Amino acid sequence: MDTDAAHVYQMWMSPRARGYGLSKLLLNSIIDWAKKSNRKVVCLEVTIVNEAAVNLYKSIGFVAAGETQTLREGSALLTQTMILELCG
């Protein structure tokens, strides 16, 4: 197990709760925890058709890493790994 990385496996916000900045608050809390836990990077995967999520992650500083992959066998959906390198 990679102890230098913190992983966000799934994040979903109820449609009624969207648009209030709650996702950004949650991600910033995860990032703060990762820093305090001496992690060097935060990793996640996002379905690339979810532009709102991709844009959220980019606005925080996540960048695409590697090639896109299918969500699961037989799926037409593609996912992209994104990482945020932590400084200090």
Rank of each mutant, 00 (worst) to 15 (best):
V42K: 08
A17G: 03
K35G: 00
A64Y: 10
I48W: 03
T79Y: 03
A65L: 11
V63P: 00
T68V: 06
T47S: 11
F62A: 05
T68K: 09
G21Q: 01
G21K: 03
I30T: 04
Y9Q: 10
G66Y: 07
A53G: 05
Y9W: 13
V54Y: 01
S23F: 03
A52C: 08
V49C: 14
S37K: 06
A53I: 00
L25V: 11
K40F: 04
E73G: 01
I83A: 05
L71V: 02
Y20H: 12
N50T: 06
S59H: 08
K58V: 12
D2M: 03
E67T: 14
T79R: 13
D32P: 00
S37F: 06
L56V: 05
S37Q: 13
N38E: 09
A34P: 00
T70F: 13
M11Q: 10
E67G: 06
G74F: 03
L77R: 15
A52M: 09
C87Q: 14
S23R: 13
V49F: 15
G19R: 00
T79D: 04
I60N: 12
V8S: 05
V42C: 09
L86T: 00
K24I: 02
A53T: 02
L56Y: 09
W33K: 12
A65S: 10
A5E: 01
M13W: 07
G19Y: 00
S75T: 05
A52P: 13
I83T: 12
D32I: 04
I31W: 14
V54A: 06
I31D: 15
E73T: 06
P15G: 01
M11G: 08
M82Q: 07
L86K: 00
G19W: 00
L26D: 10
I48H: 01
W33Q: 13
I48V: 15
T79M: 11
T68R: 10
G66E: 03
E85V: 05
E85A: 05
T47K: 12
A76K: 15
L84V: 01
V41C: 10
Y57F: 07
S75W: 01
K40Y: 04
L56A: 07
M11V: 09
C87V: 13
K35N: 02
R16A: 14
T68A: 02
E73H: 02
K36Q: 02
T81S: 03
W12D: 15
T81C: 07
R16Y: 13
L56M: 09
T70G: 12
T3V: 13
L22Y: 11
A34K: 05
S23L: 03
K58D: 14
E45W: 03
M13N: 10
V42H: 09
R39W: 08
A34C: 01
A64K: 08
E73S: 03
N28I: 01
T47P: 14
T79V: 15
L25N: 15
T81A: 11
G74I: 10
W33V: 10
R39D: 05
L22V: 07
L77V: 08
S29W: 01
A64I: 11
E45L: 02
L56H: 06
V8M: 06
L77G: 11
S59G: 08
E67I: 09
S59L: 07
Q69D: 15
K40E: 12
V41A: 09
T47Q: 10
N28D: 14
Q80N: 04
D4F: 10
D32L: 01
